[in-house]
């Protein structure tokens, strides 16, 4: 029973980091219709920058904030290249984000080196329902809950949040109202960068991150995001938790080496299942 609890808590925590990556996907896709292949990059930058800054003697708190700001700035930069040129079709933008994800490797290797980095945020473990659980896992869950609540407030209560929704729902009408959808798209990229960066900051203490950790994080985040058709952060959260817990359970009871396969097969199954229910027409028009 205690190992079940341990797997469950760890699965939920990992799922939370996927959810943050996924919400970045959703954020950017909603406003720009671009699937950002560089979404895993933000997590890598967030995690590696924090570790590196801490090594250079920056105190906790400041290091994390600087790392998040860098991830957001990188998001903005990628957005400028991907959607900044007027008339770039969404699929071209997608290919550009793929290129930039590779390009980011160059910068990451130069700045952080090509070895995995890690750091400690919350020390030690605690007893929870009879199981030993890393304190960091609770930090992850807490921060994720707060972030989701803030996102909810941002979209539900603020004028800018509503404008982002407006751009997602009808970019033409948004332009007529004087809202600039490209500028809103860049804002979405920056927020998406910060969310991805946050995922990296939270996960690096339990899973060391290297420059090429991005594809696995991105694939898991994407898998979670497609639960909600890349449009709904709350369904993405649900998807991420399902994914995280099932990976953790399989890793715990069947063998750690199957975690990745299960997650990926699950993602493929969901995608194919969703595609079978969506007519071609709806997708080509959208």
């Amino acid at each position: 029973m205690s190992s079940f609890i341990a797997y469950l808590v760890s699965g939920i925590a990992i799922g939370c980091t996927y959810a943050l990556v996924a919400s970045g996907f959703v954020m950017i896709h909603r406003v720009t219709r671009v699937v950002n292949f560089a979404q895993g990059t933000f997590a890598v930058v967030g995690g590696m920058a924090t570790a590196s800054l801490l090594r250079h003697g920056l105190p906790h708190g400041l290091a994390e904030v600087v790392a998040l700001a860098s991830a957001a700035a990188l998001g903005l930069l990628i957005g400028v290249v991907a959607i900044g040129k007027p008339g770039t079709p969404p699929l071209s933008s997608v290919i550009i984000t793929l290129g930039l994800a590779i390009g980011a490797y160059a910068g990451e290797v130069m700045i952080f080196g090509d070895q995995p980095l890690s750091f400690t945020m919350a020390h030690g473990s605690t007893s929870f329902l009879g199981a030993h659980v890393d304190r960091q896992l609770f930090v992850i869950m807490g921060v994720t809950v707060v972030s989701y609540a803030l996102l909810q407030l941002f979209f539900g209560r603020t004028y800018v949040g509503k404008a982002l929704t407006a751009c997602s729902s009808n970019p033409y009408a948004a332009r007529l109202s004087g809202i600039n959808p490209s500028r809103m798209g860049l804002l979405a990229f920056a927020i998406g960068g910060a969310l991805g960066g946050l995922a990296g900051v939270l996960i690096t203490p339990i899973q060391p991150v290297s420059f090429d950790s991005d594809s696995l994080l991105a694939v898991n985040g994407f898998a979670a995001a497609i639960f909600g058709g890349l449009m709904h952060p709350s369904t993405a959260l649900l998807g991420a938790l399902v994914l995280g817990v099932s990976e953790s359970m399989i890793g715990g009871y069947v063998g750690a080496s199957y975690e990745i396969e299960v997650a990926l097969v699950l993602m493929l199954a969901i995608m194919v299942w969703r595609a079978a229910r969506t007519p071609v027409m709806a997708e080509e028009v959208a």
Binding site: V35, F37, V94, L98, F222, I226, I260, V265, M267, V280
Partner: peptide, 15 residues
């Protein structure tokens, strides 16, 4: 289609 296929084929390779 599109980016879904891209991610799916990427996942196939990882598997």
């Amino acid at each position: 289609r599109g980016h879904y296929l891209a991610f799916a084929t990427l996942a196939f390779q990882l598997i």
